[in-house]
């Protein structure tokens, strides 16, 4: 954690979320959420299911369009261009370009099953960033090595364990050299004994100067790695602060009641 705060290269990847609203049909899942994550910071979002955590994450790379409010990355609006006093919706191509600066890791990995681990990692740099195939492969192998899977580069996702698949997915997100990495419950679909191999990789990323925004239910990990913990409930940010504040001395009764439910079993281990 201290390493993150002193990371010297963190000059990009400032995320500012201001009053974001989002509804699905009649249910409003985000009710005016505001949140700032400093460049190179590690924000962990916790909260009960249905609190809007994942939706918030998906608005950051414009997988969900917001109904109100706005999100900027290094001062640039996500999904819109400012011309005069109007916001113009970006076209598909420009949105895709913005997304290459934001990596995302999904709960269900979403690796492409018909491509090998290396092909999964090397696909986007070629088609989205116009790098050469040889360079993308070389960099892909480097990244697979970094997540400890260099020897499985030729394996198809179904030939890998859940933990290995998620590590490939992380390598795939890193391949675009993103400023920001979004993790949507990266360990929720894993068997308990595979959780740590994935968390170790994320822990290492936390010191790399990339901004990380992580939705997770792993409280021990959150305490360990976060410099900001955000507690969300019913579409709102209830409380945010350092891990010591949130876990040790929560101010809001809703935070306290949530933590009392999720922390007990963790300490019994």
């Amino acid at each position: 954690m201290t390493a993150t705060l002193t990371a010297p290269t963190a000059t990009r990847g400032l995320v500012e979320i201001t009053g974001v609203r989002k509804s699905f049909g009649p249910t409003e899942v985000l009710k005016g959420v505001s949140l700032t994550v400093e460049p190179g910071g590690v924000a962990v979002i916790v909260g009960p299911s249905g609190s809007g955590k994942s939706t918030l994450l998906r608005t950051i790379n414009h997988l969900e369009k917001v109904d109100g409010g706005h999100i900027t990355i290094d001062g640039k609006l996500v999904g819109y261009a400012v011309r005069g006093d109007r916001l113009h919706e970006l076209r598909e191509k420009e949105i895709l370009k913005q997304r290459t600066e934001i990596g995302m890791v999904f709960q269900n990995f979403n690796l492409f099953p018909h491509l090998t681990a290396l092909e999964n990692v090397a696909e986007a740099p070629v088609v989205a960033q116009g790098r050469s195939k040889a360079e993308a492969r070389r960099r892909g192998l480097e990244l697979l090595d970094r997540v400890g899977l260099k020897d499985r580069a030729g394996a198809y996702p179904r030939q890998l364990s859940g933990g290995q698949q998620q590590r490939v997915a992380i390598a795939r997100a890193l391949a675009l050299d993103p400023k920001i990495l979004l993790f949507d419950e990266p360990t929720s679909a894993l068997d308990p004994e595979l959780v740590n191999e994935v968390l170790d990789v994320i822990r290492e990323l936390a010191t790399s100067g990339t901004t990380l925004i992580i939705v997770t239910h792993e409280m021990g990990f959150a305490r360990d790695v976060a410099d900001t913990v955000v507690f969300m409930d019913q579409g709102q940010v209830v409380e945010q602060g350092t891990p010591q504040d949130i876990f040790g001395n929560p101010r809001e009764p809703r935070t306290r009641s949530f933590l009392s439910k999720v922390l007990e079993p963790a300490f019994n281990i």
């Binding site: 895709l96 995302m104 492409f112 088609v127």
Partner: peptide, 24 residues
């Protein structure tokens, strides 16, 4: 989820159809 992952990686729409969705 396949389309979502491809979109999140910035892969263009035509390439998403031909390289990701159609082979599957």
């Amino acid at each position: 989820g396949q389309l979502e992952a491809a979109a999140a990686l910035g892969i263009p729409a035509w390439r998403r159809s031909t390289r990701i969705v159609l082979p599957q």
